[in-house]
Design a protein around this nucleic acid. Structure first.
Length: 256
DNA sequence: AATTATTGCAACCGCAATTGT
DNA sequence: AACAATTGCGGTTGCAATAAT
C-alpha cells in the first residue's frame, strides 16, 4: 500500500484565488508551517487541492517575495544564466532571492525573448541569428572548423580571448558555488532562529530580516492587507493534526 | 463608443523524480 | 524491491487589462 491520493478533485474550487482564501492559507502557514501540502487545504479550511495551495503560496503570498518589475540588471543576469542552464527556471530563480521560477519564466517568455530577437540574438541558442543562418548553411557543407571561425568573427573574439573567457568563467563558477553555500548557511541559521515554523517551506531565499519584519522585503507601492500581519495566531497546528488518528480524519471527511 | 488584437500574468496540466509503505 | 503517493518542475492555457483600429 502507498500513500493517500493528493486529492480527488471532486468539489474542489479552481481559478483565481480570493482574498479570503489567501487569508486562510497565509494564516495557516504562518502559524504552522508546512509539513504536508496534501493536508494544508483540509487543515486551513480551503476547497483547493494541495498542489494548488503550494503553487499559490510559492507565487503570491509568501512574505519573502520581492515584488515589482525585474530590473535591467536582473534581466541581464537571467539571460546569462539561461545561456548556461537553458529552461531550468527553478535553477535560474534560485539565483534571485525573492523571485519565483514562474515569474522569471513569464518574464522570459513575454519580454526577454522579444528583446533578444530585436537585438538579433536567438533566445534558444543565444547566438546571433545572422550567424545561425550562416552556420546552418555551413553545416550543409559539413565544415565544422569554418563554423567555429565564423562564430569567433560574429562574436568578435580571437582564440586567446576565448582562453581568457574560459578561465574567467571557471573562476566565476567557483565564486558562485561559494556564494550559494554561504547563502544556504545564512538561510539555515535564519530558519533556526526566526521563531516561525517554516523549516519545511519551499523558500531557499528567505532572509532573517524578512522573517523578523516582513514589511521590509515588500515594496512600498504594494499594499499588503493588515490581516497578513495579524495572522500569527495559532488555530490548528501540525501537532494537533499529528495527534489525530489518520482513519478518524479521512472517515470524518467521507461522512460530509 | 464598439470591436478586435495584443500583452502580461496567474493558474492549470502532465510528467519525472523523490519519498513512504 | 515494488508499488503508489507526493512533490517539484516546465510547458501551456485562460483571462483580464490595455492598445489599436
Amino acid at each position: 500500500m502507498g500513500r493517500q491520493p493528493c486529492c480527488d478533485k471532486v468539489g474542489l474550487k479552481r481559478g483565481p484565488w480570493t482574498i479570503e482564501e489567501d487569508h486562510k492559507l497565509v494564516t495557516f502557514i504562518l502559524n504552522n508551517g508546512i509539513q504536508c501540502w496534501r493536508m494544508v487545504p483540509k487543515l486551513a479550511g480551503l476547497l483547493r487541492c494541495g498542489k494548488s495551495c503550494r503553487l499559490r503560496w510559492i507565487n503570491y503570498p509568501r512574505p519573502d517575495l520581492k515584488r515589482g518589475a525585474l530590473t535591467e540588471m536582473e534581466e541581464n543576469q537571467i539571460i546569462e544564466l539561461h545561456a548556461r542552464l537553458g529552461n531550468r527556471w527553478s535553477k535560474i530563480a534560485s539565483h534571485f532571492p525573492g523571485r519565483t521560477d514562474n515569474e522569471i519564466k513569464n518574464h522570459w517568455n513575454t519580454r526577454i525573448k522579444k528583446r533578444l530577437n530585436l537585438l538579433g540574438i536567438d533566445p534558444v541558442t543565444h547566438k546571433s541569428i545572422e550567424h545561425k543562418e550562416k552556420s546552418e548553411t555551413n553545416n550543409m557543407e559539413s565544415n565544422n572548423s569554418q563554423n567555429y571561425e565564423q562564430e569567433n568573427i560574429v562574436i568578435g573574439r580571437s582564440e586567446s580571448d576565448h582562453q581568457t573567457a574560459r578561465a574567467e568563467a571557471k573562476e566565476e563558477r567557483i565564486n558562485e558555488v561559494i556564494y550559494e553555500t554561504s547563502n544556504l548557511t545564512n538561510n539555515y541559521e535564519m530558519l533556526c532562529g526566526a521563531g516561525l515554523n517554516m523549516v519545511n517551506c519551499y523558500s531557499p531565499s528567505f532572509s532573517l530580516e524578512d522573517s523578523v519584519n516582513p514589511s521590509t522585503s515588500i515594496q512600498d507601492d504594494v499594499a499588503i492587507p493588515q490581516w497578513y500581519f495579524d495572522s500569527v495566531d495559532s488555530v490548528i497546528s501540525w501537532n494537533s493534526f499529528n495527534q489525530l488518528d489518520d482513519k478518524e480524519l479521512f472517515f470524518s471527511e467521507k461522512r460530509q
